[in-house]
Amino acid sequence: MARSSEAISPTAHYTGYAWFHHGMSHEALVTPQGRLLFNALRPLSKLAQVRGRPTAEGFLLARHRAMDGLLEQAISEGRVTQVIEVAAGFSPRGWDFKRRHGSRLRYVEADLPHMAERKLQRLERAGLLLPGHRVQALDALADSGPMSLSALADRLDPAQGTAIITEGLLNYFDRESVRGMWRRFAAVLSRFPQGLYLSDLHLARENRTESQRAFARMLSAFVRGRLHLHFSDSEEAIAELRAAGFDTAGIHDPRQLPQVGRTQPGAELVRVVEARTGP
């Protein structure tokens, strides 16, 4: 599999720098490509904000803060002591949560081999990889084999509450692929006393205005491919999560969460999934 920087999507570079720019990440997770992309798009982002339109920067921050808040709550309540972040990219979440929770939390960052190798090298060089924090290769579409989620979960403690988190992943895949991922996630989490799944999700009904559709077209061009809107509304998404094997499921509007608030431009475009297995 390709291992060059060109194999990593523009959004991985961009988001890595966006998080750093807003004080949420470490410089070790910043790439020159990310800095260049962020600064090149900043004037357009500021113009959109002045006109009251959604911005990529805004919805990225909204989803990240919302998911961080829900994960922090689960850890603080003792429901989760192990986290698997699928398609982690240059996300600072593993470093940030291990820094805050130390030995109380085991954190696994997983991604395709070239991205996992790049992330591991950066964390090791900067001395950011603490005990109980590892990075490994994973294929989120694999049902079995050494790169499957099931094989990764075999190395975790089966007696501990576990979370799976995906950010910026689902909308690259078609509906059937997402259904398959959700079935795999639910099956793996059911092996633990309590399971939590967190993810961002874009719903068709929440992206209907002309400015929202224009923003979606811009994002599609940016990521060099179609962005899929799999479900019409929260009710349809929740039904699919339950059908995949989750015991309970809910869809959050980030603007209703205290970590985000209503003033974040672009927050209205994204929803956050919170699904659970176990009691």
Rank of each mutant, 00 (worst) to 15 (best):
H114G: 12
E109N: 04
M115K: 02
R118N: 05
S103P: 13
G89M: 01
Q73A: 15
V86K: 04
R118Y: 09
G89K: 01
A116Y: 05
G89E: 05
T81H: 10
R118W: 06
M115E: 00
P92C: 05
A88N: 04
A87T: 08
I75F: 09
H114M: 12
Y107L: 10
P92R: 02
Q82E: 00
Q73R: 15
R100D: 02
I75T: 07
A116L: 10
A110L: 09
L120I: 10
F97M: 11
P113A: 13
T81W: 03
E109S: 09
L120N: 13
E77L: 04
E117G: 14
P92F: 05
R79I: 00
E109T: 11
V83N: 12
V83C: 13
L105A: 09
K98G: 07
K98W: 09
H114L: 09
R122I: 15
D111C: 03
V86R: 02
G78F: 10
I84V: 14
D96M: 09
S91W: 12
R79N: 03
R99A: 08
S103A: 14
G89P: 02
E109V: 08
E117I: 02
M115T: 11
Q82F: 03
D111Q: 05
K119M: 03
P92H: 02
A116D: 03
D111W: 03
E85F: 00
E109I: 05
R106F: 03
E77A: 08
E109A: 06
T81D: 10
G102I: 08
